[in-house]
Write a protein that binds this DNA or RNA. Structure first.
Lengths: 233, 233
DNA sequence: TCCAAACTGTGTCCGTCGGATACAGAGTAT
DNA sequence: ATACTCTGTATCCGACGGACACAGTTTGGA
């Protein structure tokens, strides 16, 4: 059976003998993505993906070694290629748009947040996203490790915000996470958590949709800008 | 069966009649934590937790409605209470120490990174961590939503870094994530990913242990400092 | 032209996990 | 003493991931 890195990076060549394969890796990944978009990653079983393709469950194992590899394929196909960067833009606008586009991708496929955890083999699409971020920082005076760290910090922030937003029943921002059952918990315990209580009380006025995304993004990019300025001087 | 919020927040009162319970919520959570620390969250099954307590699997369901609630209890017990803040420290040192302490907790129990995803009911310990962060920012001129956003950004950064570090086989930093199989992938594809290739090439010189944590932390706190300064003026 | 090799899809089986349900024993209030 | 309540247990079930052997299909070589 082909390895995961081979599955992700080497195009499948048709077999020289035997019957024509009725499926494609792209078709299988697409069916999995459809199932995960509809009912989440937990409901995306081999059985269900196979059924949606009109095939038995075990037929999938001719193409994919196991479920983890299938999810990896789904992940890279779901994130897709990053949008083309605006040619004349500076590093800050480019990274800002990059982060917001990544956020949009995660919101389109919320299950990718469960799948893209830990150190994994990056697929072509994921690596292209990373390439774009590093390319945006090339020439700013940062060295290699710092550029990769900036990209990791940004993508981490985007992922965390998308996670909080997708899991929230009401599509509010961060504040809704603390709403609902948290209100009942906090009631009567204001003395133990005075700062949180005060922060929540002062939030009632204006609730932002994905305000937390822009906020953290602005802070991180401000900090990166400070570092770049200090290097330039 | 008691609700999750009740399990987390209301102390269990002994039953008025019937035999003495042989187990405790704390003992069950501790057994689960031990199992998860040893072999990960996937290997932490009801059967195994029950066996380590000398009890049948179904006995656990007298204390916990299901596995998700058990994991929630384990999570809050594993993160534990935050360390006491240094009294005279400013907001920046306090948040820096807060983030590093949180990082250490996550590294002690790597499975918490899998468990603490999405909008969930915060337990007493988790809420105390949030309280400390918001308290550190009280009086800086930021309003409630901004303080919560800063805490979310910081905890998200810490979590992402801990995730990358715990999943890496070699305990290197970010660079090791792109090492190993990524090197083989990048070989021969330098034209498609020139920026990443260049960044990786310039990283060979000095590899930092958890350099990425400090780097992102410094950027975020720099950005927060800029905002606070602009409010002060 | 024929046959063996290679490859695909299928049916069947297994171990494990989370969980429901019914039941027997233990301890207390009346 | 008795009825009630609560605990731990035994048994069962459905779903899931995956192993394995088998039948059918296509092609390369003799």
């Amino acid at each position: 059976m082909r390895d995961l890195v081979t599955l992700l990076w080497e195009p499948a060549e048709p077999p020289r003998r035997g019957p024509r394969p009725t499926l494609t890796l792209a078709a299988i990944a697409g069916a999995g993505i459809a199932a995960a978009d509809a009912d989440g990653l937990a409901a995306t079983t081999m059985q269900r993906v196979a059924e949606s393709l009109g095939v038995t469950k075990m037929a999938l194992y001719r193409y994919v070694p196991g479920k983890t590899e299938l999810v990896a394929l789904m992940l890279d196909a779901a994130v897709g290629a990053p949008p083309d960067p605006v040619p004349g833009a500076g590093w800050r606008e480019t990274l800002d748009a990059w982060a917001k586009a990544l956020f949009a991708r995660f919101c389109e496929h919320p299950w990718t947040l469960e799948a893209a955890v830990g150190a994994r083999v990056l697929g072509p699409c994921e690596l292209t996203w990373l390439e774009r971020a590093v390319a945006a920082l090339t020439g700013t005076g940062l060295h290699g490790g710092e550029m990769l760290d900036v990209a990791a910090t940004l993508s981490g922030h985007v992922r965390n915000l998308a996670q909080q937003m997708s899991a929230a029943s009401a599509p509010d921002g961060l504040e809704s996470e603390l709403g609902g059952p948290m209100q009942a918990v906090l009631a009567g315990r204001e003395d133990r958590f005075p700062a949180v209580t005060a922060a929540l009380a002062s939030i009632r006025t204006a609730g932002g949709q994905d305000q937390a995304l822009d906020f953290g993004l602005a802070r991180i990019l401000d900090g990166v800008g400070m570092l770049i300025d200090s290097r330039g001087r």
